[in-house]
Design a protein around this nucleic acid. Sequence first.
DNA 1: GTCTATAGGCAGATAGAC
DNA 2: GTCTATCTGCCTATAGAC
Lengths: 206, 206
Amino acid sequence: MPRTEQGPGATTASRILDVAERLAQTRGFNGFSCADVAPEIGITTASLHYHFPSKADLGRALVERYTESFQASLRDIAAAPTDAPAKLRAYVQIYQQVLGADRMCLCGMFAAEYATLPEPVQAELLRFFDENERWLAAVFDAGLRDGSLRFNGSPQDAAHLLTSALEGAMLLARTYGDNARFRATLDRVLATLTGAWQPEQPSGTA
Amino acid sequence: MPRTEQGPGATTASRILDVAERLAQTRGFNGFSCADVAPEIGITTASLHYHFPSKADLGRALVERYTESFQASLRDIAAAPTDAPAKLRAYVQIYQQVLGADRMCLCGMFAAEYATLPEPVQAELLRFFDENERWLAAVFDAGLRDGSLRFNGSPQDAAHLLTSALEGAMLLARTYGDNARFRATLDRVLATLTGAWQPEQPSGTA
DNA sequence: GTCTATAGGCAGATAGAC
DNA sequence: GTCTATCTGCCTATAGAC
């Protein structure tokens, strides 16, 4: 899922987006400049501004493409002949791959910087989360109906919880440089949300 | 818990920290400048640099003071004659109050910007999370021993999960400007981690 | 579409007077 | 401790040639 950066064959605009995406995911929107992007693909910042007149335009395009790419993955997962727990695991796997490339979720990163983002980027960001949580809620709802999932509260609540846990666990795992931590946390969250939950007393108690 | 900004009676250094803390929690470390802070307390940026020679010094002092303030709250909670579930609720309440002041957790914010932070700020940030999770793990461990908590995995795993959920839920609640969302998510997480968990089928299923 | 050159602003930081 | 004045560098963005 973390994008492989394209070579000279691709359009300049998409190569700009590739580099900017990596920088945005590792350093944040306020943590990189046009001057960081342009040299990496062998152009000047003046040329960059030809493709994206302002940095706000670039930011908006980043979130837009990221959302589209995510939606494509979600369609694939939805189309697969698997049950709801497997679809949730596949969903978590997307984030795990991003983290494996030492990146934060682009939109989790931008969420932290929300107050400083240009308005068009803010609007696009909300679309990402809205669409993700709508998809998740549908999966939770379906799993509840066919009995493959058991959890408390509404499907939407479950979607909110999973989204929060994903973004938070990524944030912490990246800070500690410890991706196993992400996996452990998400395994527990998924266990809770699928109903695979056995409250057992550990052996050595007082 | 979100700090009340002090008037002219307080030391200049602490008033600088008050303003910088609010800006850092709402806009991030890369989202505010010395020129934003100084005028708010009626000094120039030159004076600000007298108290904090570099922005890295300011950032480090911010996290240091934030951690100390947190630790004081944790000591109070630990000293109170309450059971583990109540201590966890009180812990979550700290974050809820921060969010109620329309702020992100300072350290959650800085965690997103981790790669761009000056090294001394990074180090101080890790201390914050280490100490918090150590405290949480102790509470989870005690609750497990006295039977007031039931959960799967190690106390440390539980601490990781709660920390991730807290930071992630704050991030999303702030983006949506919806603090009820934070409360709902954390109620569910706490229910899972205290063992107050009843896998019930909702009434209207197919 | 890409370049050179540069504008215009803001960043963090310093010198030296008071 | 605080000021005025200023430096240097970086930022986003534009003008105009090729």
